[in-house]
Amino acid sequence: TYTFKVDNKDQAKKAAKWAKKLGLSFQIEKHGDTFKITVQ
């Protein structure tokens, strides 16, 4: 499981695209202005 934080929606979208490309499941949680992405 890999967790990282991004500062904006664009970065969150890029991370989601990357995870989908690799066939991984992911969750994006919004914490105020940051997004926490968990990829597994």
Rank of each mutant, 00 (worst) to 15 (best):
W18K: 04
L24F: 09
K5A: 12
D10T: 14
K20D: 04
K5L: 15
K14A: 13
K13E: 10
K9D: 06
T3A: 06
L24E: 01
A16Q: 08
T3P: 02
K17H: 09
S25Q: 11
T38A: 04
D33I: 06
K30V: 09
K21V: 06
A16I: 14
I28T: 02
K30P: 08
W18S: 02
E29C: 13
K30S: 07
Q11S: 09
G32M: 05
D33P: 08
Q11L: 10
Q27I: 13
K9Q: 09
S25W: 11
F26L: 08
K36T: 14
F26W: 06
F4D: 01
D33F: 07
D33N: 12
T34I: 14
D7H: 12
A12W: 04
K14G: 04
K5N: 14
D10M: 13
F35S: 01
K17D: 08
Y2V: 07
V6P: 01
N8M: 03
H31G: 04
K21R: 12
Y2F: 12
A15C: 15
W18L: 05
F4P: 02
Q27W: 13
Q11V: 07
I37T: 00
T38S: 06
S25A: 10
K21S: 11
V6T: 08
T1I: 12
D10Q: 13
G23S: 04
A12N: 01
F4K: 02
D7K: 14
K20Q: 10
K13N: 09
Y2D: 02
K30R: 12
K5Q: 14
A12S: 03
G32H: 05
Q27C: 14
I37Y: 02
T1G: 11
D10E: 14
F4A: 02
Q11R: 07
K9I: 14
E29G: 03
G23F: 04
G32A: 05
T38Q: 05
T1Y: 13
T1A: 11
Q27M: 12
S25N: 11
L24S: 02
L22D: 01
G23Y: 03
Q40A: 12
T38L: 05
G32W: 04
Q27A: 10
F26R: 00
K17Y: 10
F26G: 01
K20Y: 08
K13A: 10
L24D: 00
K21A: 11
W18A: 03
K30F: 06
A12L: 11
K20C: 14
Q40S: 14
Q11K: 11
G23W: 02
F4E: 01
K36H: 13
K5V: 15
S25L: 11
D7N: 13
T38D: 02
V39Q: 00
T34P: 01
H31V: 14
T1Q: 10
T1W: 13
T38N: 03
K17R: 13
K30I: 08
L24Q: 02
V6A: 05
G32T: 03
K21I: 07
V39K: 00
G23T: 02
A15W: 15
K20V: 07
F35N: 01
T1D: 07
F26A: 06
F26Q: 00
K21Q: 09
D33K: 10
N8P: 02
L24I: 05
K17G: 06
I37K: 00
V6D: 01
F4L: 04
K20M: 10
F4I: 06
A12H: 01
A12K: 03
S25H: 10
F35R: 01
K9M: 14
Y2C: 15
T38F: 05
D10Y: 15
L24A: 03
K13F: 09
H31I: 14
W18H: 03
N8D: 07
L22I: 05
A15E: 02
A12M: 09
Q11T: 07
T34D: 06
N8V: 02
K13M: 12
A19Q: 01
K5F: 15
F4C: 15
S25F: 10
A19E: 01
Y2H: 07
D33L: 08
F26M: 07
A15R: 04
Q11Y: 05
T3F: 09
Q11A: 13
D7S: 13
F26D: 00
K20S: 08
N8H: 05
V39A: 02
T1F: 11
K13G: 05
D33A: 09
T3N: 04
K36Y: 15
L22Q: 08
A12D: 00
G32Y: 05
A19Y: 10
H31F: 12
Q11N: 05
T38H: 06
A15P: 01
T38P: 00
I28W: 04
W18P: 00
S25C: 10
K36L: 15
Q11W: 06
T38I: 10
A15N: 02
I28D: 00
H31M: 14
W18T: 03
D33R: 08
I28R: 02
L22S: 05
T3W: 13
A15V: 15
K20R: 11
K30W: 05
T38W: 05
K21M: 11
W18Y: 05
L22K: 11
G32S: 04
N8A: 03
D10H: 14
Q40F: 15
K9Y: 14
K21P: 00
K14P: 01
K13S: 08
Y2A: 03
A15F: 15
I37D: 00
H31R: 08
T34V: 14
I37E: 00
I28S: 03
A16E: 08
A15Y: 15
L22F: 08
T34A: 13
I28E: 02
A16Y: 12
F4V: 03
D7Q: 13
V6Q: 01
T1E: 09
A16H: 05
F35A: 01
Q27E: 09
